[in-house]
Deep mutational scan, measured.
Amino acid sequence: GVTLFVALYDYEARTEDDLSFHKGEKFQILNSSEGDWWEARSLTTGETGYIPSNYVAPVDS
């Protein structure tokens, strides 16, 4: 299955590639091989962008 991640904090995008999000928003991670910045798709907005990996945690299934 796909592991979903949930935002622990609000984040405001600093570049066009970043994804702004709110605490509690859920994400599907598309690429986590880039280190501290993961490519993710928000399940709330459907938008794709980079998120700071230390702002999210796995959702307990």
Rank of each mutant, 00 (worst) to 15 (best):
W38H: 07
P52F: 12
D18I: 10
Y11W: 12
E16G: 07
F5S: 10
T15V: 13
S20H: 07
F5A: 05
D60L: 04
E39M: 04
E34N: 03
V6Y: 08
T3Y: 15
D18R: 14
I29C: 10
P58W: 02
P52N: 10
P52Y: 03
T15Q: 14
L43G: 05
D36W: 07
D18A: 13
T3L: 11
L8K: 15
I29P: 07
S33A: 11
A40S: 05
R14W: 04
P58C: 05
E34M: 09
S42P: 01
L19H: 02
S53E: 08
V2P: 02
D17H: 12
G35V: 12
A40N: 00
S33K: 07
W37H: 15
E12V: 12
D60V: 07
Q28P: 00
T48G: 08
G35Q: 12
E16P: 11
Y11K: 03
L43Y: 08
T3F: 05
A40K: 01
I29W: 02
D60N: 07
S53G: 12
E34F: 03
S42I: 12
S53I: 06
F27N: 01
N31T: 08
W38M: 13
E34D: 03
E47S: 12
L19K: 02
E16Y: 12
G1H: 07
K26A: 06
N31K: 14
V59S: 14
R41E: 14
H22Q: 12
K26V: 04
G49Y: 01
G49K: 01
K26C: 03
T48Y: 05
D10K: 03
A57M: 11
D18T: 11
D36R: 09
D17E: 14
V59I: 10
E25T: 08
F21G: 01
D36E: 09
V6F: 05
F21R: 00
G1M: 03
T44V: 08
R14Q: 04
Y55D: 02
E25W: 07
F5G: 04
D17C: 02
A7F: 00
V2D: 11
P52L: 09
D60M: 05
Y55G: 15
D36F: 04
W38Y: 13
T44I: 12
G49T: 01
S53C: 11
K23D: 03
N31M: 05
Q28N: 11
D10Y: 02
V6I: 08
T45H: 04
S61H: 05
G24M: 03
V6T: 10
N31S: 09
N54A: 09
L4Q: 13
